[in-house]
């Protein structure tokens, strides 16, 4: 087995008395899509923020590309990017200007050609010169995905990238991601509340509940282990059990 792109061990994050992420360990192999499932407040986004160096873990280690995130932040983050429906980009800049700024922050070469390519790939020609404040939510999602892909990451962290999007755009984005993952051998950490999407996109899934991993494996493994009809039923069972035990 090759060296994992991400190797997280005993990751813990406490905010005072509240434990948002509790002794979590997982890895992501090159070219693998790891789905992270869990109800709201399970610790998915906090885990992503720790992987991006935006939140300091209370305990545990994060290694990416064989390097420790705490001591090699710059080198690691050059090869990592993220996208989420919940993030924004400066509204007073055009789509193209925002992409140029991101490209410079990541030290890309041949920026105009790369921006042109990503604009074509994501079918964004019509909004290229548009102010970001005038974008619809679907266009905004494409922009945040474009900014993530533009930097040619080896690891992509996608936090509910299709939430609040219509089925057509969701379908296009998923198709693009699958093709891009195949052609670039990209590793992806993917969170979503859409169980069908998780089954479709993920090679492997970890299920987080109150900060802990309570299930791990392929979607089929998890469904059969819990004796449920599909992943959605597993989600409902675990989420309700979790709430009942609170």
């Amino acid at each position: 087995m090759s060296q994992p792109i991400v190797d997280v061990r005993n990751l813990t994050k406490r905010f005072g008395d509240f434990c948002a992420v509790d002794n979590v360990s997982f890895h992501i192999q090159p070219g693998e899509i790891l789905g992270v499932l869990g109800p709201n407040g399970a610790g998915k986004t906090t885990t992503i923020h720790m992987l991006l160096g935006l939140i300091t873990p209370t305990a545990g280690s994060i290694r990416m590309f064989g390097l420790d995130l705490g001591t090699h932040r710059e080198a690691i983050l050059r090869d990592v990017n993220f996208s989420s429906t919940y993030i924004s980009m400066p509204f007073s800049l055009t789509v193209e200007e925002n992409l140029k700024v991101i490209a410079r922050l990541y030290g890309l070469k041949d920026i105009p050609r790369k921006i042109d390519a990503i604009i074509k790939q994501l079918d964004m020609q019509e909004i290229q010169a548009k102010l970001t404040r005038k974008l619809s939510s679907g266009q905004m999602s494409r922009l945040t995905l474009a900014k993530a892909i533009l930097t040619e990451p080896k690891l992509l962290l996608l936090d509910e990238p299709t939430a609040s999007l219509d089925p057509d755009i969701t379908h296009k984005i998923k198709a693009f991601l699958k093709e891009y993952r195949r052609s670039e051998n990209l590793s992806i950490l993917y969170t979503s509340h859409n169980m069908r999407e998780m089954e479709e996109m993920s090679d492997r899934i970890i299920f987080l509940q109150r900060g802990k991993i309570v299930a791990e494996g392929t979607a089929q493994d998890i469904v059969s282990r819990f004796g449920q009809k599909d992943l959605e039923d597993v989600f409902l069972k675990l989420a309700r059990e979790g709430r009942a035990s609170q």
């Binding site: 983050l77 980009m89 400066p90």
Partner: peptide, 18 residues
């Protein structure tokens, strides 16, 4: 403040920018 209003701090500090 401009970064805060634009909710752009995450984009900046999740990049290699120090």
């Amino acid at each position: 403040l401009e970064e805060m209003w634009a909710r752009n701090l995450m984009n900046l500090f999740a990049s290699p920018l120090t």
